[in-house]
Amino acid sequence: MIEVHALSKHFGSLTAVDEISFTMQPGEVFGLLGPNGAGKSTTIDCISGLIPPSSGQIAIAGNDLIRAPRAAKARLGIVPQEMAIYEDLPVVQNLRYWGSAYGLRGANLADRVADVLEVIGLVDRAHDKPKDFSGGMKRRLNFGCGIVHEPDVLLLDEPTVGVDPQSRERLFDMVRAQIARGACVLYTTHHMEEAETLCNRIAIVDQGRKIAEGTLAELRAQVGERDIITLTGAFAPGHTLDEALPEGVAVLQSEDSRLTLEAEDGPARLATLLDALSQTGAEVRETIVRRPNLESLFLKLTGAELRA
């Protein structure tokens, strides 16, 4: 449905996207997971035709975006990170406008607008202006404007920024509805939980590069069954720690006041670990043990927190 091959985007000397490739199939949610500034939005901008890629190919439903942009864009729907609606126009007029921008007209447009109003749950507010809506309702309309033409490929760029948990769940339901009708969704986020909840396959990006890709199970396997132990306090230098740590525990990241370790069966080894650290003169004030997840994979791959 969508093929991205060796996509790169340079802004002067800055490489925002560096040789990223992936494919998506109908009925699939593909997650682009990475911290802010990782190149997710630039990737989306290239795929949506907003900025030309420096190199690489993008094909949407078999149509090359550079050579046949109109045919490619006709199959594409976008829900931008920032709101992109007319707040001074009623909901129904927003949907009609964006539907007509994708070439819908007449009864087809009217039917689609009616369907989308149902999907986004704004039937009873169809003739109200969004300027009076809550953030969640505006987000739903923003989503609706992106699906009014029933796109085969839907790009969602961090759609839950500033959204309350209830609205987020509703948004997830709307995404699942698109999947159910056969669309594929490219979903960018820096929330590991969202990617785990929604995505069939995930690519982890950092500094413009794809550093891992796979299903959730495949990615978890890369971390292994090793827990992540994060300690806060005052610690001895790294080389001293390495010698003091018990068997099966390894340092992932070491800072002056923060130590991140990976360990098999972390809770069972915690007492031994703390005892060993105290013998190096360390003072531990806080201890967090986490089960293996995407965040721990990101931490393992990059040495940095995903939310940084």
Binding site: S48, I78, M83, A84, I85, G103
Partner: peptide, 13 residues
């Protein structure tokens, strides 16, 4: 500033 120009650029219009 509303983002509508940007969204328009991604449509076929």
């Amino acid at each position: 500033e509303m983002g509508t120009l940007r969204r328009l650029r991604s449509t076929v219009a």
